[in-house]
Design a protein around this nucleic acid. Structure first.
Length: 236
DNA sequence: CTGAGTTCACGTCACACGAG
DNA sequence: CTCGTGTGACGTGAACTCAG
């Protein structure tokens, strides 16, 4: 518990710092160009994933003090700023159109398994699911939509759609609402997993691109030095 | 060994955005 | 306009590392 508290403290402050950086970058001119957005986006990414150094943490602590004196900063405003950035997939796909070496992130859905596309999100989970209300396994206290859903490729929403005419009593309506919510949560769960996978892929792509560009840069510098040597007058 | 710090993966919520 | 999807943000737990 304390662990988490501390961790949250650091994480939250780091995030805040990152956001402040973004805000200061975009200050006055909310970026409408892709390039600007990209840089801001990248900062967030690295900010989120990198480890704060001691100095950073110290800075964070200082910032936190001032932040406390200011009170709670409008998180909605930050959200707005952050959410206007293009998704990393868009960025990468734009990059890939410019740079041939950069692969696109497509909705391949691991086609090597040869599974129909609509099965991907529907793969009936055999592992334990965790919800905010507790845990339930595939064999245990499963949500109704999983129990009833046959293992077909049909989306569960379709499978479980109750005939509209049969939903009259408040209880049935409540059940339907719960079922819809569970379904949405399950889909979102899967979507989040897929999203993280793509994000990792995206980061790897960027890292490899950096490596390539560094090599390229090094070569160009060497070439420049060589040319300088050739062109420079050999007096002395 | 233990506590603190870090990293990673996950589930959920909120929201933007595109399709119909 | 509504709905479904993608993704950033957030909170959490587990696993790992490391200094004392």
């Amino acid at each position: 518990m304390n662990k988490c508290g501390r961790k949250k403290y650091i994480k939250t402050n780091l995030r805040q710092m990152t956001m402040e950086t973004i805000e200061s970058q975009q200050d006055g001119s909310v970026s409408d160009s892709v390039a600007e957005s990209e840089s801001a986006h990248m900062q967030t990414q690295t900010g989120q994933n990198s480890v704060p150094t001691l100095a950073q943490v110290a800075t964070i602590a200082e910032k936190d003090e001032s932040a406390e004196s200011e009170g709670v900063i409008d998180s909605h405003k930050r959200r707005e700023i952050l959410s206007r950035r293009p998704s990393y997939r868009k960025i990468l796909n734009e990059l890939s159109s410019d740079v041939p070496g950069v692969p696109k992130i497509e909705e391949e859905k691991s086609e090597e398994e040869g599974t129909p596309p609509n099965i991907a999100t529907m793969a009936v989970p055999t592992s334990i699911y965790q919800t905010s209300t507790g845990q339930y396994t595939a064999t245990g206290d499963m949500p109704t939509y999983q129990i009833r859903a046959p293992t077909t490729a049909l989306p569960q929403g379709v499978v479980m759609a109750a005939s509209p005419g049969s939903l009259h009593s408040p209880q049935q309506l409540a059940e339907e609402a719960t079922r819809k919510r569970e379904l949405r949560l399950m889909k979102n769960r899967e979507a989040a997993k897929e999203c993280r996978r793509r994000k990792k892929e995206y980061v790897k792509c960027l890292e490899s691109r950096v490596a390539v560009l560094e090599v390229q840069n090094k070569k160009l510098i060497e070439e420049l030095e060589t040319l300088k040597d050739i062109c420079s007058p050999k007096t002395d």
